[in-house]
Design a protein around this nucleic acid. Sequence first.
DNA 1: TAGTGGTCTAGACCACGGG
DNA 2: CCGTGGTCTAGACCACTAT
Lengths: 252, 252
Amino acid sequence: MGTTQLESVPEPKYWHLKTVLSEALDQDFAVGEVLPNERDLAARFGVARATLRQALEQLELEGRLQRRRGVGTTVAPPRVGVAVGTAQHSWPGESVDGWEPVDAAEAVVTPAVLKLLGTAAGELVVSVRRTRVEQGQVLAAELLYVPASSVPGLSAIDTPAGPARARAVMRELQKLVLDGQDRSVELGSARADDAKELDRLPGAPVLLVTTRYFTAAGTAAVSVATYRADTCRLTFGDSGDVQITHDTRVAS
Amino acid sequence: MGTTQLESVPEPKYWHLKTVLSEALDQDFAVGEVLPNERDLAARFGVARATLRQALEQLELEGRLQRRRGVGTTVAPPRVGVAVGTAQHSWPGESVDGWEPVDAAEAVVTPAVLKLLGTAAGELVVSVRRTRVEQGQVLAAELLYVPASSVPGLSAIDTPAGPARARAVMRELQKLVLDGQDRSVELGSARADDAKELDRLPGAPVLLVTTRYFTAAGTAAVSVATYRADTCRLTFGDSGDVQITHDTRVAS
DNA sequence: TAGTGGTCTAGACCACGGG
DNA sequence: CCGTGGTCTAGACCACTAT
């Protein structure tokens, strides 16, 4: 009964390593500074490289580090607060909101998107690609699905492919009367095409923001936005500029 | 010029593996079904166990799989839609919203939380622990920080520790007039204590929802809720029951 | 070309859950 | 107890970036 709990719950090495590194980052490193390479770090801590990498992966997931093949590991700046639910009930792209149209084309629609749209399979759906750029960095890539049934003027658009066509589709969409919208956020991993636009490797963790736009006639459009989970903090509500250094929670 | 791009971009094995497994899950497995163990699967696909695990980790991140030590890997049900931004401008716990008070105690506050609260260091702050339970499963763990300066009756509470004390603090809080609120969502990894409540391993991916509650006097409380990223899809807005099978995006 | 992170292997042992 | 997933090792080679 008198035994104190010594090592009864042995902490995994990578977990302890993560804590140590985290404190080191707070104290001895500035934002943008490059860390020693993985082989050196592993040797310094007396662990295998794979174990060290497990710790680095966690720190990257938490937005503390940024790793780039061929370059190195650097200390990441605090996450950017990105307003997602700003003006209530507005079509996307109505004001200067950081989104840049890229292109528009006939969409290949998955059953899941079809269900969200509430349209029949085989019907024409146009997809608009947009990216959200801030301070020269791409934060998010979006695919906006617009069924021809909800926007009359859609099939008349003959603008050549590119940003101009995307803008033309957006203009048609904005002619409708927006009744409401619906949003959901979940964790995902970047598909190859999104990863490329976000300057990340495929499989990188992303935040998927799915928005449904409603008119009186039903669901007029669905948007699936892919945000870089490492660099973005999505903000909702009126005042959108919370400043968080790293993590509001206590360190382990 | 006439060369077709054959293998010019060799896909990583684990990525291809993930795709194959993903399709197999759709076609040959039912929700809740257990997969063969990792050693068998690795042998079947002719890869090392570590490589197979990399694929499984991705699928777990996307909410397709659930792995439990000592038990096995099972096919996960679709993510639960969890309403986060339902009734506008309401104190937490005012109606039956799935949150269960656990305990309340004097809080150890990080600088980051202090900054959010806008209070001085050293001041008394009470934290309330709550969990969000749905269908017998804990979806989220929350820490609600309430500075004594914003709630007068706080220091008079002498209820013994436990859910009762938590409820007492909540009642005091709800006496204030709520002016507005503020929310942000970001990716994090589960701390040891949260992980335990969520029935996950430390480091598991979670969605951190930070909410600030405002009164005329300023920030009256701050809540940090930790949602299981593998099982939850956070929904905002009025109608909160979107049904998504797995992923709205096209398969690679 | 040199140095970085990314992928992959073939082992080993540990912690946990259920019979 | 056995079988599961979780951790860890010590290598190897590849893909990318900068110089």
